[in-house]
């Protein structure tokens, strides 16, 4: 089976503070990988290294190699804009664009890429909203502002926005942390449906969620990758003592 990502000895810093230490891991295509760990362990930083969002923070640095389809995205001649186009990202808090309608929120990525054809845009918006299980709720209100939706709907709108540009990978940064259980259940269901077409990496502080949705789980602690394995064995039979302590709730 092909690997979508091969992370090789990646270090990351914020100024003088090292956030990631020698991370190496491989992520399979069409799988869901969860990254878990206590807050401040570097899981979000790792996720943001995948699409070169980490470097947007002033004074942030990365070293090591991160292969995406065999190409090191940290090579000098790689344009992060091109890399990010092939990955969709969903953030902790829903962040639809308030000055755009629901339709434009989904279409914005395509428009940026030069798609002007109205019919094409419509079709893509509908397809993405359907895939994000939002179509039935908003199809009669596409002109309304994106921020008029509920929190859970907004987050699904953001997922639809990420899906619209036909990415290969979906990166999710605690997508449910600001949502109620019902909305969370919807989004989890959505995530599990995504892996047929996409490779999904999800950061979560919720171990049950990781266990429910993911195929593989990586446990990070203080910037180091403690354990990385298939989800079921990792939760049922962790090899490292630290992992066991974390998943049994001894710390975190």
């Amino acid at each position: 089976m092909a690997y979508k990502f091969e992370v090789e000895q990646v270090d990351a810093w914020f100024g003088a503070k090292q956030a990631l230490k020698q991370i190496s891991m491989k992520i399979k295509e069409n799988s869901i990988t969860a990254i878990i760990g206590p807050s401040g362990c570097g899981k979000t930083t790792l996720l943001r290294c995948f699409n070169r969002m980490h470097e947007l923070v002033p004074d942030a640095r990365v070293s090591g190699r991160l292969l995406f389809d065999g190409q090191n995205i940290y090579d000098d001649d790689v344009d992060p804009v091109k890399i990010r186009r092939r990955m969709g990202m969903v953030f902790q808090r829903a962040n639809p664009f308030p000055m755009m309608s629901i339709f434009d929120n989904v279409a914005v990525g395509l428009k940026m890429n030069g798609v002007r054809n109205k019919a094409k845009l419509r079709e893509a918006v509908e397809r993405s909203l359907k895939r994000a299980y939002l179509w039935d709720e908003v199809n009669d209100a596409l002109d309304k502002s994106g921020v008029s939706l509920s929190g859970g709907q907004q987050q699904r709108l953001c997922i639809a926005r990420a899906l619209a540009v036909e990415p290969e990978v979906i990166l999710m940064d605690e997508p449910c942390s600001a949502l109620d259980p019902t909305a969370t259940a919807k989004i989890e269901q959505l995530i599990m449906g995504l892996k047929e077409q996409y490779t999904v990496v999800i950061v979560t502080h919720n171990m049950q969620q990781a266990a429910r949705v993911s195929d593989y789980t990586a446990f990070l602690y203080l910037g180091e990758l403690v354990e990385y394995a298939e989800t079921v064995p990792l939760f049922e039979n962790p090899r490292m003592e630290l992992t066991e302590q974390y998943i049994t709730g001894k710390f975190g």
Partner: peptide, 8 residues
């Protein structure tokens, strides 16, 4: 970040 992550 939302727009940058879309490859802006």
């Amino acid at each position: 970040e939302a727009v940058i992550s879309l490859g802006a």
